[in-house]
């Protein structure tokens, strides 16, 4: 029974990882841009949810879309003000620019809100439910469903719509896309906006069950990088599979071997996968 709960918790945590990574997959995978500020985008979304709830008394039905919109705008702004220029340079310039951006976002937040921990009430989406002896937190289930929804949505967008083809075309070959009449800048700005909006949904949902503090993005960002890489850059379903896999592996290894070693197991498996399959789980060779 306990083991079933361990697997279930791992599955739900994995869904959070997938959710957390969905926006990063789009930005990193599609555009080949590393976003070191990703964790801080999530953090900003958490504060949007917090401010909306405590100061404006808005419920999750409003603050989740609100966070998506705010982050969409932030993403577009960051693209035009920074990323567009940085992309002219080598990949290192992206690391430089987004690392600096991460510090600015993180500590501007600390300046405004102080370093104190805050949180939302844990039962905004209802009390813990018990099914067949298994305990389920509604907020985590919502996060899991959102991860699934966002993954399917992004996947359909990229593979079944004209907009998606254009996004992919720009990602594949910027100058070729220009030749067939696609203006790359609005497309890439849109990709950044969409990626950031997904991150916004993720942050607002994670805020339902996690603490909120300016440095919260740091502790989650590394795992998001691993998820995107393990799934294969540019593979949206890959991130979902990788996220769930890491969640379950972590949970089981924490239960059996000890929580101090769960990241050890994850990183060893990650390296093993890369060494034997250098394009990630679902990435194209």
């Amino acid at each position: 029974m306990i083991l079933a709960q361990v697997v279930l918790n791992g599955f739900l945590v994995g869904a959070v990882y997938a959710l957390f990574s969905s926006g990063l997959t789009l930005i990193w995978g599609m555009m080949n841009v590393v976003n070191f500020a990703h964790g801080d985008f999530v953090m900003i979304a958490m504060y949007v949810a917090f401010v909306a709830f405590t100061m404006l008394h808005l419920g999750p039905a409003i603050f989740v879309p609100l966070a998506a919109i705010m982050l969409f705008l932030l993403g577009v702004l960051v693209y035009y003000a920074l990323v567009r220029h940085v992309m002219r340079g080598p990949m290192l310039a992206q690391i430089l620019g987004t690392f600096g951006l991460a510090l600015v976002l993180r500590y501007a937040t600390l300046w405004v809100f102080s370093a104190n921990f805050v949180s939302l009430p844990e039962n905004l989406l209802g009390e813990v439910q018990t099914f067949a002896g298994l305990r389920l937190e509604p907020s985590r289930v919502a996060a899991g469903l959102a991860a699934l929804g966002l993954t399917i949505g992004l996947h359909l967008l990229l593979t079944h719509t004209a907009l998606g083809s254009r996004l992919l075309a720009v990602a594949e070959d910027r100058s070729a896309a220009m030749l067939v009449g696609i203006r790359p800048d609005p497309m890439q700005a849109l990709a950044w906006g969409l990626g950031a909006a997904c991150t916004g949904v993720a942050g607002a949902l994670i805020a339902l069950f996690f603490y909120i503090t300016p440095t919260v993005g740091e502790s989650l960002a590394l795992i998001a990088f691993v998820v995107v890489c393990l799934g294969g850059f540019g593979s949206v379903p890959g991130a979902l599979v990788a996220g769930l896999a890491i969640g379950i592996i972590e949970s089981l290894s924490a239960f059996w071997i000890g929580p101090a070693f769960k990241d050890l197991v994850v990183f060893i498996l990650f390296l093993a996968v890369l060494w034997f399959r250098p394009q990630g789980l679902l990435g194209k060779a």
């Binding site: 306990i2 989650l220 949970s251 929580p259 769960k262």
Partner: peptide, 20 residues
């Protein structure tokens, strides 16, 4: 005794170990 890494994203495994 269950040592764990600080600032982790999830602590439910430790709680379930205790519950067990």
């Amino acid at each position: 005794q269950i040592p764990y890494a600080a600032n982790s994203a999830d602590v439910s495994a430790q709680v379930l170990q205790l519950k067990d």
